[in-house]
Write a protein that binds this DNA or RNA. Structure first.
Lengths: 332, 332
DNA sequence: CTGAAAGCGCTTACAG
DNA sequence: CTGAAAGCGCTTACAG
């Protein structure tokens, strides 16, 4: 590949001049500028950004580490992050941690080593020393969707409790008293908060959460399938089930169908996360909607603020409860 | 941040020795090695990979440029690429081109500048000079899902025609004669091929494709909504509609529901791409399944082969036609 | 306006 | 086994 030296030679100038026209820095005569541009074109020259970064410390790339691209929630988040970043002149490179702390660390290293300007991440369960270290080393970091309480890092995410309360109130009002939950992992704040809110809301409405109505999943499809099956095999199965994310909801729906049961008639189902196809299922799925796009966009803005030396702030966005017909609601 | 010099000083050795223990290159006494490792730990040292790459030309990262993360097909592809890459010791960083040739070029530059070992991409419509240039400059590149015929670049993708033929035969066999298509863009091979196969299959089965039954979409949801609406407003609307990707199928389904129509009874619908929730819709959606995971994995293997100086090959994977009940099929 | 030169943080022959 | 030194491809004061 052509280097800056080749260009300089071809244009009959020094490498300093080439650098100047490339970066629009300092003044260069029009004539010299033209010769350089010409040389760049004919040589098909592209600056080596490793060298450039090494020297100038300037970068216009943001790193994003997400839990799992296959989860539509994260895909939407990634999209929002990308859109907002681009509007500010940044690109984003994505690493997929696969909900695996070790993998997350590796991406953290890779992205940081590549000298991204700043980092956005959805932290997985365990606290990795690498994360704290990155911050101490002066890297700008903001969490999104999830947080790690011990770490005091600016976080943009959903306020989980209020919509869960609304959901439970709704379920009770349409006549459910035996309500089960397919919860997320204990180790994730999103898992904890949704479960805590669910439990509390149940109590507020004069219900209990018997141990056998609590199933801990891992936010993946298969755990939803398993949980739903075992729930329906109980001597006294629940009349409604709340799945704490869209993937487990998908699993639960699949399990209902496989058991030859009917949604709503045989067992009600509600989901945290709302997906476009929820409206197309018969009956349409009652769900909690997160403001995913806003979470992604605001996180980027906070990160950029922190890049500019301002103090990044944390945000919590309320969710919207969207009752439909999957829980025995009367049809309109 | 600590540099290799700091480590060298702290360990009382030269930077050369530090580099040796870091890369497990050459021999170092156990004692020196221990001192270096100790220094690395206490200083929280992480090598600057820009500098390392600049010097050694070695990289273990693959770049992936996809059309749109929000499209579940691409998300699945990205996941497969990542899994396979990791099994070979590579990481992958993803760029989201948003189906925009200019954006694609920018990611191409960014990823190449960051010195990825090789590049995987789903090329958007227009041929970008940047792509040919990258290849000429000796970069390893493989296309997946789509290709650009003029470019002669190894491509791993689906064989689109055969399953479409099967689909059409199926539709005719269950009594459809007025079949419309919501096609992808003309400029994408996937769009072209699916349409051409559809047209040909119709002819084989003694049907026509009247101009008003051909709607060109852009592989996005909204175009599916529009197309479906206008199709059903025709004086003689089709009895079945084939959507050339999952996003347009989603749009079409939404449009059917919004118009108060019933799937299958009022109009049949089939989709290219099969999604987990297709089984959950009532009635379940008839679809063409791509071997997405295999496409992603094989593309990575070909890229790695080409990195090792072997000639990468092109692959075409057959699709599987999955008849369900959305096209007036008799219920089992 | 422009060039010579130093230096970013590493790796790697080359001596010893 | 180890260090001094060159060099990867850039950018940026410093002179002129």
């Amino acid at each position: 590949m052509a280097t800056i030296k080749d260009v300089a030679r071809a244009a009959g100038v020094s490498t300093a001049t080439v650098s100047r026209v490339l970066n629009n820095h300092g003044s260069v005569t029009t004539e010299a500028r033209d010769r350089v541009n010409e040389a760049v074109r004919t040589l098909g020259y592209h600056p080596n950004s490793a060298a450039r970064t090494l020297r100038s410390h300037e970068v216009s790339t943001l790193g994003l580490v997400i839990g799992d691209v296959l989860n539509p929630f994260f895909a939407e988040l990634a999209r929002a992050v990308e859109d907002e970043a681009r509007e500010h002149g940044y690109y984003v490179i994505i690493g997929n941690a696969d909900e695996n702390p070790q993998c997350q660390d590796e991406y953290l290293d890779i992205l940081l080593d590549r000298r991204v300007a700043g980092l956005l991440m959805c932290p997985t369960a365990e606290v990795s020393p690498r994360v704290g270290e990155a911050v101490r080393n002066g890297h700008s970091l903001v969490f999104l969707d999830r947080t790690i309480p011990e770490l005091d890092i600016p976080t943009v995410r959903s306020e989980n409790a209020q919509a869960v309360h609304e959901l439970v109130r709704h379920l009770c009002s349409v006549g459910h008293h035996r309500i089960a939950i397919i919860s997320g992992p204990d180790s994730l704040v999103t898992g904890q908060e949704r479960l805590a809110a669910f439990r509390e809301a149940l109590r507020d409405n004069g219900c209990e959460l018997p141990a056998e109505y609590l199933r801990i999943g891992d936010f993946q499809v298969e755990s939803g399938v398993q949980a739903m099956r075992s729930l329906m095999e109980l001597p006294a199965p629940p009349t409604a089930v709340f799945a704490a994310d869209n993937l487990m909801a998908l699993g639960a729906l699949r399990s209902i169908r496989d058991q030859g049961l009917r949604i709503s008639t045989d067992v009600g189902i509600a989901s945290f996360d709302d997906l476009p196809w929820f409206e197309l299922v018969d009956p349409p799925i009652t769900a909690v909607q997160q403001r995913t796009e806003e979470i992604g966009r605001v996180a980027v803005r906070e990160l950029i603020a922190s890049l500019h030396g301002e103090q990044a702030r944390s945000w919590k966005f309320p969710c919207r409860f969207v009752p439909r017909q999957s829980c025995g609601e009367r049809h309109p």
